[in-house]
Design a binder for these strands. Structure first.
Lengths: 339, 339
DNA sequence: CAAGAATACGCAAGAACTTGCAGATGACGA
DNA sequence: TCGTCATCTGCAAGTTCTTGCGTATTCTTG
């Protein structure tokens, strides 16, 4: 790799000046800076964008990109960051905590101004949190999306899952459904526990006894399985933890010779792009990704300006029920029994 | 940041040993290495995964994540790389060449073993290629997906767009369509030009005169606009450049009071997850993302092993027509005229 | 036009990191 | 038991990078 002295000679300046330019220090003429940067790049020397006045760099971590809601998160976050002049470092699929730590360390190494983690291991119950502390104790603002950890000195931005389940249950109850199933993924996960809690208290109010819950996973196959299991337990409506699950549930319902929404109502979660394209169009809960992303980015970047460490904050964003074609009035008593 | 001497003292070894460990040099006992790494991480010092024997790091660049096909690419590439023990660095939305260069430089700086670029600026006509040369001349294998640049010493993996358009045209011709429109995005882009060329030669064979083409963009709105324009020009079938365009085209067709596929047939491109969920289900061309991703990763990683620079290679993968409900026999003559 | 202020830049000291070399340690065979 | 060999580690010198300070240059203002 080209040494400072090589660049210095080529650019006709001293080693010291090159050092200052490459570290984004002040006290260098703009013209000189440009010359040095040009030479540096020509000789194959990496220059941190933040050192070139290209704004800060922010690290973002998303669990995967198969699920479109995470892709949407990444997309929105990146767009918001771009708008504020920041560039983005992306990490995906931190399958293990070790890997997550590796990615976060890489962010730190790259000198990020902030870190945003969407549904990472912080959403897991009893997850180790030390690797997050490494970020916060370096004085770097940390924003955790969809998962709250009381022990962490970070900012949290989450969908109000409790409210989400509540409005869904109200909607279904108004349509006459009295036996409703919840289909979700891993029980040890923050959003699932939130939904579960809201589901239990919400349905308890009906006084119709305990309502069934199926724990599978957030995939198409998971939705299919969950639907079949819940139908066996006599439900007339299924509340799914994701839109992908919901279309899997469509298929599960059809596999029993039933029809959506005539026999069974189905509600999704996320409102991904294609939710309005399914047949019937999916009634679902819209996570307010754009406004949440904006909040996350604002928190991430403002923390760096005022005080190095932002106070522990918690933003909870209300979701919105998007009623489309997959929910309808409950079939009359007989229908739900005949199965 | 913790200095070598701090880590050395804490770990009870010399500065030299720490230096060796952090640079992945040989000649350090495995036990000592572990201790040093632990201390280093605890004190907040970044350790390159490749230095810890965690396999190589590969840089991947995708244009955006809104379009699910790109999300799928990122997902598949990451999965393939993971399977081969590599970790992945992701860059998204290199809007400008300058930004793309910045990301590539970052990859180089991070010591990547290879770089994979999906539909980057190399897919643009007359795009500057110097920033790609910076990668190749550093002896790092470069794989460019969906876009071929004769002047570059890189590996290319592309969908056979020519064949794609061909099988679509054959399908539509067999269904009796004689006036077909092509709806694509930016004309100065490699995949569009490939499709256009194939479209022109393919339809020329019919001897029905020149067939209309609409250049909008690869979005829902683009599909809507294109469909309306093409309908005005009398088509009974529309070949879209992406699945998102296709569903936009659905709406464009409906806005004219026509029905898919009774009055107008529509073909998408990509076969994204939800293509089978639309109404009617979308007939589309499946890009063989999994096998292409595998080829791209294999090329990227093998290049580094044998010879530092792989010979210039070009892999072209045949797509597959997935016939679903959005294509049907052409309406009889009158129908296409009445409009 | 001159004095003072601000900015830009190099010198050189020194901080941080790397590496050649040799000593220490231990395994193994004679 | 001793010699040989391979491995591991620290020493210290070398290389590379950073930074305090002083000077040169340009700008500002009366």
């Amino acid at each position: 790799m080209a040494r400072l002295i090589d660049i210095a000679r080529e650019a006709g300046v001293s080693e010291a000046t090159v050092s200052r330019v490459l570290n984004g220090k002040t006290g260098v003429n703009e013209a000189t800076r440009t010359v040095v940067l040009d030479v540096a790049r020509r000789l194959g020397r990496f220059v941190e964008p933040s050192a070139v006045g290209h704004g800060p760099v922010v690290g973002m971590l998303v669990p995967d990109l198969d699920n479109q809601v995470f892709a949407a998160w990444a997309e929105r976050l990146e767009a918001e960051l771009f708008e504020r002049g920041a560039s983005t470092l992306v990490g995906i699929r931190a399958r293990t905590v070790e890997r997550e730590r590796e990615i976060l360390q890489r962010f730190l190494h790259a000198g990020v101004a902030a870190v945003i983690v969407v549904s990472g291991h912080h959403a897991q119950q009893n997850a180790p949190l030390d690797h997050y502390r490494e970020v916060t104790s370096a004085g770097i603002p940390l924003v955790l999306v969809n998962g709250v950890q009381p022990g962490l000195d970070a900012a949290f931005v989450s969908t109000d899952d409790e409210n989400a389940v509540d409005i869904v249950l109200t909607h279904l109850h108004e349509l006459g459904h009295r036996r409703v199933g919840l289909a979700v993924g891993d029980e040890h996960t923050w959003p699932v526990r939130e939904k579960l809690r809201a589901f239990e208290t919400g349905t308890a109010r009906w006084g119709e006894g305990e309502q069934p819950v199926a724990f599978t996973d957030f995939s198409y196959a998971g939705g299919y399985e969950a639907a079949r299991e819940l139908l066996d337990r006599g439900v007339t409506a299924i509340v799914c933890g994701s839109d992908v699950m919901a279309v899997g549930a469509f298929e599960g319902v059809r596999s029993r010779g039933l029809e959506v929404p005539r026999d069974v109502s189905i509600v999704g979660y996320d409102d991904v792009f294609w939710a309005s394209l399914t047949h019937p169009a999916l009634t679902t809960v819209r996570q307010a990704v754009p406004s949440m992303a904006r909040a996350a980015v604002r928190t991430a970047l403002s923390g760096g300006e005022d005080s190095r460490r932002p106070a522990r904050t918690e933003v909870v964003v209300r979701p919105q029920l998007i009623v489309r074609g997959s929910t309808a009035a409950a079939p009359d008593g007989a229908a739900s029994m005949e199965r």
